[in-house]
Design a protein around this nucleic acid. Sequence first.
DNA 1: GGAATTTGACCATGA
DNA 2: TTCATGGTCAAATTC
Length: 422
Amino acid sequence: MAASSGSLETSTNSNSQPQQSSPFSFSTSGSFMTTSFTDLLSSDNYPGSAGANGSAAVRRGLGERIAERTGSGVPKFKSLPPPSLPLSPPPVSPSSYFSIPPGLSPAELLDSPVLLSASKILPSPTTGTFPFQAFNWKSNSTNTQQQQDVKQEEDFSFQTQTNPISTGHEAWGYQEPAKQEGTALKSEINSMQRFSPEISNGFQSDNNQHNQSSQANKKSDDGYNWRKYGQKQVKGSENPRSYYKCTHLNCPTKKKVEKSIDGQITEIVYKGSHNHPKPQSTRRSSSSSSTATLASSVAIQSYNQINEIPEKQYNSNGTGQMDSVATPENSSISVGDEDFDQSSDHKSKSGGYHEFDEDEPAAKRWKMENEGEGISAAGTGSNTVREPRVVVQTISDIDILDDGYRWRKYGQKVVKGNPNPR
DNA sequence: GGAATTTGACCATGA
DNA sequence: TTCATGGTCAAATTC
């Protein structure tokens, strides 16, 4: 639950470098919003409780509620978001990400010992970097605000006291990037999204190369070669969506990329796994060096945990720890080509790249992916700055992803309508 | 001239 | 059954 995972960044952000402010800045500076996530949770208007209330008022957009609270106008994307844009509260609602079982209050979840503490940010085991460091969370906040931010972040973050390998403070703490510039953009990242410096690099690279020749764009900085096979304007987004296939022979990997008009990537969704090593690239290193300046933030969403992709299944190695899984995303995330080797290992462990149900129509799968993406920055900002989102659809059952983090399973449940346990 | 991209049409799926 | 939507195909276009 993105919204629950962190405080909304409410910075009014008159900053001339909105992108630098990063979607990952959880600062609450500015008048936009000073409401903590806890407040949201406790709010009667909180969509999570809307199910019971179900009133139209309750279903107002988050931006509206925020504006109501703060008295400040909520910037809207281009002022007039299309009616069809996902501005409605449900997508924004943290509840869209999390389903809190009856009898379990959000507060309990927040107090859960398995929740990862945002304060326990550790470098990526694979990259040795702090995934968020480039995002300069508090760069736009005052010290006091920073304190508050941290506090809020802790409030929302899952904390773990048993697993020293903290992971995802960002994941859980991350709040919709667009909150800052708020728009109806789909740049929001859900709670489980992960940030990868390398993917970020890829984004930046893509962005930087946006205006370059198509040839130059052939290989994105995720290390693979992609061929665009389609583009379409999707409903609810003014950004065209491009469809890419990995150019490697027989490689089933695809990705969807949404770019804003100005060429900024607002969303990337990967599908499938590469069945080949990452091509040699001489640009990656250079792109990596620019990570710190990356304006666009990227998040990796593990659908098997978030969006409940049917094909997603968890394979436990019996130790309670999930085997690493090789996915194209993972490969993209990790540093160096050795990640392909990891992928190979994963293949052997998980039984192959294509464990996901190939019988399921791809369209359906992708659609399901998007179902969890409903969060819009609706009314959370006025800027057109969009933080690219990378959605990694892992296809293995493994819970430890090669996104550089380790995931600890803390529950499993059979969800109605979904044959696979969540 | 070959390869990549664009873009309209077609198809599948779900409401 | 119809319609809306998203994904893919493939001819046309561009590089």
